[in-house]
Design a protein around this nucleic acid. Structure first.
Length: 489
DNA sequence: CGTCTTTGACCTGCGC
DNA sequence: GCGCAGGTCAAAGACG
């Protein structure tokens, strides 16, 4: 996590960009602790020895000048004055560089600690999932044994089936999921229809895991949660950096414009799909609905959108998980992703929970999310004057990056503190306190000034989405899911 | 010739 | 059970 940025940055030691960051750190350390001159003159470390060495050389040169040249007191004093001025300037530079280095060190330690925390969270979540699976397997074994015993008349032969279900995980499944019985379909054959449906859905959703129950798997939930983007565009489709293949078109009821169905073709078996439809009232408004999570590396242009989809679906999941009644709080989610209510809406009553980012009717709303427009970084959207202009709306990924920025800022920094089963309120106003915004912006500006940072961030986001490392292609690799897990702990 | 789009048919879920 | 709407499939055609 890169909390100062709000982006979840995952720098794995095996990641080349991790090495980039480390190289940057080495560079900083070198600036602080070593210099070719240090060995020559033995100047103490941690005080910009090359600057001190320069000062010593200046002093030595001054001495030698004084011993060899005697052009009079006036020129000597002038010379000394000039050198003193330079000395003062160098000292000032030294102070500035020290302060800068200190800042960078603190940020680095922050990043490192957050990375370590994330790894611990991931390990904890994985361990939890494994324990749940083990419990489930043990349950099936126990059930099988008891059934065997009943068959042979052992133990009185009347063990209520409910008794076997009185395990927290099973209770939760029974309460929250009507199809929990399918978890044990290996022992109790379901109807042919259900079997066919499950098999088909499994094949569609997760070809590599045919035994996963789609109705209970996180993948299915991620698949069902949607992110809808409304934007003005004359083009038939918003350019979001991904490759799509059209696989269908339908006339939707109540809309004379057909709805087009696209499938991601950047990788075989990528489950991501999107629907594109023009608004009936305003034909210039294009509604693009994304569904699913990419299972492959993404080009930088596509990362922002994909990250937003993942983040939104994760938030949907975490919202549903973190509430006591199993229902998400729309205000919470909307506030989390976009504190400005006229830009984001949440439809939790729909068959698929959908986050809608409305980027059409109030472009100025963008300004509410630009913490300090004069400090533009490569990750903040351009000023709105070019907003959604042109047929391919090139600003959209940047905008989504900003949306993600806000979302991550909330989920990464505040969610674990402010959100819980008893907290159904929108994010507290303290989240957006101006002082925090200023300090955050300063930090962002400092970090993004690093020329290596865009590449590192790009790779980091890619690894989070799951594309960089196929082994990370699960929800556990998503820091937002980890956050939700944190909430439940 | 391979890839992509088009389009009608089919499947599924849901409401009545 | 039936009809409707949404979603998907797959054959045929277009295109480079």
């Amino acid at each position: 996590m890169f909390p100062a940025l709000g982006f979840p940055v995952n720098l794995s030691p095996s990641d080349p960009n991790h090495r980039t960051v480390l190289a940057e750190v080495d560079f900083l350390s070198a600036r602080n602790n070593s210099s070719p001159h240090t060995n020559d003159h033995g100047t103490p470390p941690k005080s910009y020895p090359h600057v001190n060495t320069g000062l010593q050389l200046l002093t030595a040169n001054a001495g030698s000048d004084q011993s060899t040249v005697d052009d009079g007191a006036s020129s000597d004093a002038e010379d000394k004055r000039a050198k003193m001025t330079e000395l003062a300037r160098l000292k000032e530079d030294l102070r500035n560089m020290n302060a800068e280095n200190q800042k960078l060190k603190e940020m680095l330690s922050h990043v490192s600690s957050n990375y370590a925390n994330l790894q611990m969270h991931l390990a904890a979540v994985l361990q939890q999932q494994q324990n749940q699976r083990t419990e489930s397997t043990e349950q099936e074994v126990v059930q099988g044994k008891l059934a065997e015993e009943r068959k042979h008349g052992v133990g009185g032969g009347t063990v209520p089936r409910q008794f076997l279900s009185l395990v927290p995980s099973e209770i939760d499944d029974q309460v929250s999921n009507s199809s929990s019985g399918e978890r044990t379909r290996s022992t109790t054959p379901p109807s042919n229809k259900n079997d066919k449906d499950n098999k088909e859905t499994d094949d569609k959703l997760n070809p590599s895991n045919p035994t996963t129950d789609p109705s209970t798997s996180p993948e299915a939930a991620m698949r069902k949660a949607r992110v809808s983007v409304r934007a003005r565009s004359e083009a038939p489709m918003i350019s979001d950096g991904c490759q799509w293949r059209k696989y269908g078109q339908k006339m939707a009821k109540g809309n004379p414009c057909p709805r087009a169905y696209y499938r991601c073709t950047m990788a075989v078996g990528c489950p991501v799909r999107k629907q594109v439809q023009r608004c009936a009232e305003d034909r210039t408004i294009l509604t693009t609905t994304y569904e699913g999570t990419h299972n492959h590396p993404l080009p930088p242009a596509a990362m922002a959108m994909a990250s937003t989809t993942v983040a939104a679906t994760s938030m949907l999941l975490s919202g549903s998980m973190s509430s006591a009644d199993g229902k998400m709080n729309p205000n919470l989610l909307t506030g989390a992703i976009l504190p400005c209510s006229n830009m984001a809406t949440l439809s939790a009553s729909a068959p698929f929970p959908t986050v809608t980012l409305d980027l059409t009717h109030n472009p100025n709303a963008l300004q509410q999310y630009q913490l300090r427009p004069q400090t533009q970084t490569p990750f903040l959207p351009s000023p709105p004057q070019n907003f959604m202009s042109g047929p391919t709306t090139p600003q959209l990924p940047k905008l989504i990056a900003q949306v993600l920025y806000n979302q991550s800022k909330f989920s990464g920094l505040q969610l674990s503190q402010d959100v819980g089963p008893n907290n159904s309120q929108a994010p507290t106003p303290s989240l957006l306190q101006p002082s925090q915004q200023v300090s955050l912006t300063d930090t962002v500006s400092a970090i993004t000034a690093d020329p290596n940072f865009p590449a590192a961030l790009t790779a980091a986001i890619s690894s989070i989405i799951g594309g960089a490392n196929p082994n990370n292609n699960n929800n556990s690799s998503n820091p937002n899911v980890i956050n939700s897990a944190t909430i439940n702990q």
